[in-house]
């Protein structure tokens, strides 16, 4: 983490922030605080209910990193795009940074977030992002035709499964993060976190 002023802003829930349970996240928080470093306040949420958030971290690692027919970079881009639809600043910046690292193209990621249609992303990938935006907005509007359109664009069922699970997971994270008031970090801290997520993933055990 960058050696800057500590994260500005607190969670809405000081009772959560003040009660980290012993474990990997508490150790990360203690280290960051002792060095006066900015840190990702999502760690406070993970530390508060360490007993079961550990399973959430494993689930996240599987959904975003398990080798499959859709690359981790594209899954991170779906995470960032979904977070952008849901206006979750922290998640958008965190996963845009991870996507930029994994895809090796920061400009492409910002173009996609600014205007998907005008971006130089491949049409096949745009189709997947349009699909995730549609079901993020209106989950019950999905119909079988939406999925067959993806299959016709030669996405296999495994890729579609991972795409659906990714946007569903971020419809959770965006609300957990924004609803508890996790603040955005500085650009530098988000870039460093993106590099860490790209290199070592989500497991902290």
């Amino acid at each position: 983490m960058s050696r800057r002023t500590p994260s500005v802003g607190a969670l809405y829930l000081p009772g959560v922030e003040a009660d980290p349970k012993p474990g990997a996240y508490r150790a990360l928080i203690d280290t960051a605080k002792s060095q006066n470093d900015e840190y990702s306040k999502i760690w406070d949420l993970f530390a508060f209910q360490q007993d079961f958030t550990i399973h959430l971290a494993r689930f996240t690692q599987g959904v975003l990193r398990q080798p499959t027919t859709i690359s981790p970079g594209l899954r991170e881009l779906i995470a960032a795009y979904t977070s952008h639809q849901n206006e979750c600043g922290f998640c958008t910046r965190a996963h845009a940074a991870a996507a930029a690292e994994l895809l090796g193209d920061e400009a492409l990621v910002s173009q996609v977030l600014q205007d998907l249609e005008q971006s130089p992303l491949e049409e096949k990938e745009k189709l997947l992002l349009r699909f995730t935006a549609k079901v993020t907005k209106n989950p019950s509007f999905l119909h079988a035709g939406d999925v067959t359109a993806l299959q016709s664009a030669s996405w296999d069922d495994e890729a579609i499964y991972y795409a659906i699970t990714t946007y569903a997971l971020f419809n959770f994270y965006n609300r957990w993060i924004a609803g508890t008031g996790v603040p955005e970090m500085t650009g530098q801290a988000h870039r460093e976190q993106g590099r860490s997520l790209a290199a070592r993933g989500y497991l902290r055990e």
Binding site: V135, S140, Y161, N171
Partner: peptide
């Protein structure tokens, strides 16, 4: 909001 999209999405 995740489970609803998981169930309907799949």
């Amino acid at each position: 909001c995740m489970y609803n999209r998981y169930v309907d999405g799949l």
